[in-house]
Design a protein around this nucleic acid. Structure first.
Length: 926
RNA sequence: GCGGAAAUGGCGGAAUUGGUAGACGCGCACGACUCAAACUCGUGUACUUAGGUGUGAGGGUUCGAUUCCCUCUUUCCGCACCA
């Protein structure tokens, strides 16, 4: 009998696949298309650990399955190669990021190759290659040359807009634009200088430049997008972030806010993922209300979702940074207001969030209630955020807890406005129930009526209107970094912003010697003056670069037509491949990449460059594979309450570490250099050899925790098929689960059992019989049904289990029939491609197993007799009993309805379906 | 605080539409092979004294609930003074 050796069959299968170019995919209109996409990785220096391939294995199983089912499957892979780590590494080592990136890509491809993925590598995309990023730059130019027409909810060319301006100015234009855009007539427009015209157009462009408060990270020397900041510090590195006013590029994603929100309803994404995007977009329906300022010719505008509570307003609060603060503060309060503003400015965002104490300052100013005419004081307080709504709120202490606390502290009136509001002596009651009281024109009304009555009253006097507000901000698109796409932009001698023409693309990154930002916050590209000035005539290039999400916002389209030099994707390729049917990746991109991609895709749709409104139909988020760390207990080492991570190799017998090994570790790892083994450590056995005991913990895999498992080691030891199936076998694809190498033996055994079913003789011939027995067919078809169902519903762990059961059962029936032996390889091919190909070849097939047809389940094989049994009650046939397909007939020999069941049934109250088991009910179809 | 997901043996987990709870694997125990061990193979393995009890806790709907509804507890994830 020929022994199973995974290294031989893997080699053999690889050779066959590459000779036959099995994974090459082309447009084929005779077959339905299916597009399976992985979130492409950032090629970091650390390489892959066992957590990374989880999603790739799942997508590979599904695309192989779809292919065997007759679909033309697009399953590409590439690299998201621009980004901060490569640049940080370059600063530290002086190595060019292009080189380290290429090295890392080579490592990744080698690792991915071992696992046996069915990628069509001829379609590989690397975002940092000029042939790719020229199209990223091209898309930027298109965004720059577009505006958003709200009247038709669609992006249009900027030349359409200038035509309108020349005709009739901007009065009738419903555009997504800067709210401070001045109004002008056609005559005004024509009289403007070109520079002024360009400045006005900046208020409309979908890619525009603006001075704005941005998130500046001094440590990284760059601006960060909102989603790159976590808890007030940078996502990468955890450095503090401050607000700074800078000239920056932005993308007008807010124009698409409503469409991005509505589109979510059409997607097969997890609820939590959609909810995260909804929260980020943050739509709230409410009203704008203007409160005229006493003794000033100005109003304070507030946004509120509860305009019905307007008669409960007892004061107004504006953010300390609000632009009216200086203007309205009376001389009496000037000093106090200034002092308060200073204490607020000194606080970082985190401090401001953690600070729960109520604080604020009266400005001395008052506003007039627009309906009741009551005089109301104006305060500043940092619980009102400058960045949301108008940076001002109307305070209703009876209905809002923050307003309530503020009113208590400053001794302001708390007005009950609804009869259902009780207990407002203790806290605010935000109810919408009951009838309004103390509320002028809406007394006695209910919520809905009150809202519309107040809104209409405000509209009539020009002091308010219904308004939808979004929390989402426009996306900052400038980074002061080297390793990113240069903008196809320059400034002419008059300082006017110009984009290059398409024929000038790509704008390639210049060679620089210093990758650090300049001390005044300019991008490292400013260190290459020749490049900056090479256009001549006093023209200078933009030195900022694009953020990491630029290249990843459209890469999935490039895979459709990766070599095209004339278009970013051809019409033909795009019309065939359409969109991504299945997208697999982590949840960390919930509001970054996945939102920006949807935004760009909608922009492309407006221009008819793509044919779908959404890029990713179905999204599956793979969970994290956690590592098992060994660490010291809380009280073992002074100053390390969280415990100290210990490499497994240094532990003694049992879960403990001896003194000499710990000293070894403190010397080898400078993170622990401060530990004094004699004084800081509570040794457990001073008499014999001192040690401290350790505990296991399940946490994220990371080098610093010594809990990383390398997939290469696993594959060398157990083979790729075993590795793939074990990763799936760990649990549901979407769950977080700990890696436990012990369990891999079970899967390894299973692979060897499959091999043994073929009973290979000395000559490598399988032994089989002519006819399949009924038992054999039953086992086989039960497996076909279960594996098919499980793969369809992404339950790959149970699909592996189903195959294990089948192989165990078939093992008892050897020798098997030829039919069975030819079916098995195709059935397991998605899960274990190498052994599948090996067995397929050994059954005498020239072509690859992936050119075969996935086996069809035939229910005839599952039962021996008829599957319908009549049931009679009182001599009358009332129903037919259907045996569940997976049950064998003998299990349903005795069918008895219990008394209550029969009675309910006779009363006509029986459920539509009842399932009966031995001695009980199985499945009654009425 | 708000939103989302979840809680099942010693462990990872299964139960697809409300129908035999604990599949499959690990671990453990016993047996076969072996001088012996490892490997491999086989058998058993939720708890429990017969009876019974069991899917985080309590209640409800149902002939029947791990599954549906209500209340609560805990864990993970996301957002967080959003007016």
């Amino acid at each position: 009998m020929q022994e199973f050796d995974f290294s031989i069959i893997e080699e053999e299968a690889r050779k066959k696949w590459s000779e036959k170019d099995v994974y090459k995919v082309n447009i084929d209109t005779s077959k339905p298309k299916y597009y399976v996409l992985d979130m492409f990785p950032y090629p970091s220096g650390a390489g892959l650990h066992v957590g990374h391939p989880l999603g790739y294995i799942a997508s590979d199983i599904y695309s192989r399955y779809k292919r065997l089912k007759g679909f033309n499957v697009l399953h590409p892979m590439g690299f998201d190669a621009f980004g901060l780590p490569a640049e940080q590494y370059a600063i530290q080592t002086g190595q060019h990021p292009a080189k380290t990136t290429l090295d890392n890509i080579a490592t990744y491809k080698k690792q991915l190759g071992k696992i046996g993925f069915s990628y069509d590598w001829s379609r590989e995309v690397v975002t940092s290659e000029p042939a790719y990023y020229r199209w990223t730059q091209w898309i930027f130019i298109q965004l720059f040359n577009s505006w958003y027409d709200k009247s038709v909810e669609k992006a249009k060319s900027i030349s359409d807009l200038t035509a309108i301006f020349e005709q009739s100015g901007n009065v009738g234009v419903q555009a997504a634009c800067d709210e401070k855009t001045p109004q002008f007539t056609a005559e005004d427009w024509k009289a403007f200088t070109e520079k002024s015209q360009q400045e006005i157009l900046m208020h409309y462009r979908l890619a525009y430049q603006s001075y704005a408060l941005v998130n500046w990270c001094p440590e990284l020397g760059t601006v960060l997008a909102n989603d790159e900041i976590v808890n007030g510090v940078s996502e990468r590195g955890g450095y503090p972030v401050e607000r700074k006013k800078m000239s920056q590029w932005f993308l007008r994603i807010t124009a698409y806010a409503e469409r991005l929100l509505q589109g979510l309803n059409t997607l097969e994404w997890s609820d939590s993922m959609k909810e995260m995007q909804r929260n980020w977009i943050g739509k709230s329906i409410g009203a704008m209300v203007s409160f005229p300022i006493e003794n000033h010719d100005a109003d304070i505008e507030v946004f509120t979702t509860r305009v019905d509570t307007i008669f409960g307003v007892s004061f107004i609060v504006i953010a300390p940074e609000h632009e009216l603060v200086q203007k309205i503060t009376t001389s009496e309060y000037e000093e106090a207001v200034l002092k308060y503003k200073k204490t607020c400015a000194a606080k970082s965002d985190i401090e401001r969030q953690q600070e729960k104490a109520v604080s604020g300052q009266f400005t001395g100013a008052h506003v007039i209630h627009p309906i009741s005419g009551v005089k109301v004081p104006v305060f500043i307080a940092d619980y009102v955020l400058a960045g949301y709504g108008t940076g001002a709120v109307m305070a209703v202490p009876s209905g809002d807890q923050r307003d309530y606390l503020f009113a208590k502290k400053f001794d302001l009136p708390i007005i009950q406005i609804l009869d259902a509001q009780d207990e407002i002596l203790e806290e605010a009651n935000p109810t919408k129930e009951g009838r309004y009281v103390n509320s002028d024109i809406i007394n006695g009304m209910a919520y809905q009526e009150a809202i519309s009555t107040v809104t209409q009253a405000l509209e009539k006097i020009g002091k308010g209107y219904a308004k939808v507000n979004f929390r989402m901000r426009d996306a900052g698109f400038s980074r002061q970094r080297y390793w990113g796409e240069p903008f196809p932009v320059y400034y002419d001698k008059d300082g006017i912003v110009r984009v290059l023409s398409e024929s000038d693309l790509p704008v390639t990154l210049p060679a620089v010697e210093n990758f650090k930002p300049t001390s005044d916050g300019k991008s490292p590209l400013a260190n290459a003056p020749e490049w900056v000035n090479e256009l001549g005539e006093g023209q200078t290039r933009e030195t900022d670069t694009m953020p990491a999400f630029a290249g990843s916002s459209w890469y999935f389209l490039r895979y459709m037509d990766p070599k095209n030099e004339n278009e970013f994707v051809s019409q033909e390729a795009q019309e065939y491949w359409q969109d991504v049917d299945l997208y697999i990746g982590g949840t960390e991109h919930a509001v970054g990449h996945l939102l920006y991609s949807r935004f760009w895709h909608k922009f492309f749709k407006d221009n008819n460059w793509v044919s779908t409104e959404e890029p990713f139909k179905k999204l599956v988020n793979q969970g994290m594979i956690q590592g098992r760390s060994l660490l010291t207990k809380a009280d073992s080492i002074k100053g390390m309450p969280a415990g100290m991570h210990i490499p497994l190799s240094l532990t003694g017998p049992g879960d403990k570490i001896y003194k000499e090994k710990l000293i070894e570790l403190t010397k080898a790892d400078n993170r622990f250099a401060h530990i004094q083994p004699d004084t800081d450590v509570n040794w457990e056995d001073i008499d014999g050899k001192p040690f401290i005991s350790l505990q296991f913990e399940v946490e994220k895999m990371s080098k610093s925790k010594f809990n990383v498992v390398n997939p290469d080691d696993m594959i060398d030891q157990f083979g790729a098929d075993t590795f793939r199936m074990f990763e799936m076998f760990l649990g549901p694809i979407e769950a977080h689960k700990p890696w436990d190498t012990n369990g891999i033996e079970g899967v390894s055994k299973f692979v060897r059992k499959i091999w043994r079913l073929y009973g290979f003789d000395e000559a490598g011939q399988a032994t089989f019989k002519d006819e399949a027995s009924k038992d054999e067919l039953k086992v086989l078809h039960r497996a076909i049904k279960k594996v098919t169902d499980d793969i369809e519903r992404f339950s790959f762990n149970t699909a592996v289990s189903a195959m294990m059961i089948a192989v165990n059962d078939l093992g008892k029936l050897t020798p098997l029939s030829k039919t069975t032996l030819e079916t098995i390889p195709v059935l397991i091919a998605p899960l274990a491609p190498f052994i599948a190909e090996a067995l397929w070849t050994r059954m005498g097939n020239e072509e690859s197993v992936f050119d075969a047809q996935f086996p069809m389940f035939d229910s005839k094989n599952l039962v021996e007799e008829s599957i319908l049994y009549p049931i009679s009650i009182n001599g009358k046939v009332r129903a037919k009993l259907e045996i569940a397909a997976s049950l064998s007939p003998k299990e349903t020999e005795e069918v008895v309805l219990n008394d209550e069941g029969v009675q309910k049934w006779l009363d006509g109250k029986a459920p539509k379906k009842v399932i009966v088991v031995p001695g009980r009910i199985v499945n009654i179809v009425l």
